[in-house]
Write a protein that binds this DNA or RNA. Structure first.
Lengths: 134, 134
DNA sequence: TCGATAATGATAATGCGTTATCATTTTGAT
DNA sequence: ATCAAAATGATAACGCATTATCATTATCGA
């Protein structure tokens, strides 16, 4: 991860403009929609999936990305350093969106005696704006 | 699923006494601990994993079991018909426990305009009683 | 008790997400 | 501009959970 390539720029760009967690294939498809991202790029061309996986791995290692464990699905990834937040998964288009804030702030969660809570994760399921309209 | 067998009894029994969601391999291992569950059972014998998978599938189909989607892991299963509840995952022993009640009761979750919430899921991570002591 | 047939279990096969391979291309320091 | 080293991408290989296969065994109605 020490050379600058058009593919890596494209991948970082996709994450930065997404504002939602993306899976590897999602990333690959989004790079195909970037027009003329790199020199000599054919229309509709993009980044190969091996490169997407490799680059995500490297971006995780350097802390630029963070894994999001989606219940019942393979991992997606989002930019790290975002404020504490949770996610919404649309049951129609299957995309995951960021939600602002945390409904649990200051809330008390009742645990069995002797259990200790280190962390939590909240998932909201429903229909996103697009899929509700459709 | 129309014959009564010792294996099916054993599997149902394991779920009933577990009070927590179990994965197929977990179920298989637990059946090995049942002493003399079925005629001619050797000590430490249990139910084969093909049978565990098949039986879980059947119990899901008849509504006796319900899938639990654990973030970042394969599905586990629990008895259906339980009251609304959430889960605790111990980061040491990796077991999942039921929590009573719901911290979100009556809470307001802020969604982007146009989004609709149908359902939600809360995961608490930490150390269970056993692993905290150890 | 008998016998049709459903269930079991060892094992092979599948599906899918991810990683490794390797020939080719690109980068960036000289 | 040159060139060693790194990156890419097509594809093969892998790991893992799950499902299918099929010979053997168990069930339960007649």
């Amino acid at each position: 991860m020490d050379r600058q390539t058009a593919q890596r720029q494209a991948i970082r760009g996709v994450f930065e403009s997404a504002a939602r967690p993306l899976g590897p294939i999602e990333v690959m498809n989004l790079t195909r929609k970037l027009p003329g991202q790199f020199p000599g790029q054919l229309p509709g061309a993009g980044v190969g999936q091996a490169t997407v996986y490799r680059t995500i791995k490297a971006l995780l290692a350097e802390g630029w990305l963070k894994a999001v464990d989606v219940p019942g699905e393979p991992q997606r990834y989002e930019r790290s350093g975002l404020a504490h937040h949770h996610h919404f998964r649309c049951r129609v288009c299957d995309r995951v969106f960021d939600l602002e804030g945390c409904a649990l702030d200051g809330m008390h969660v009742h645990l069995p005696r002797g259990f200790r809570m280190d962390d939590h994760e909240l998932w909201i399921y429903g229909r996103c704006k697009n899929c509700r309209a459709a």
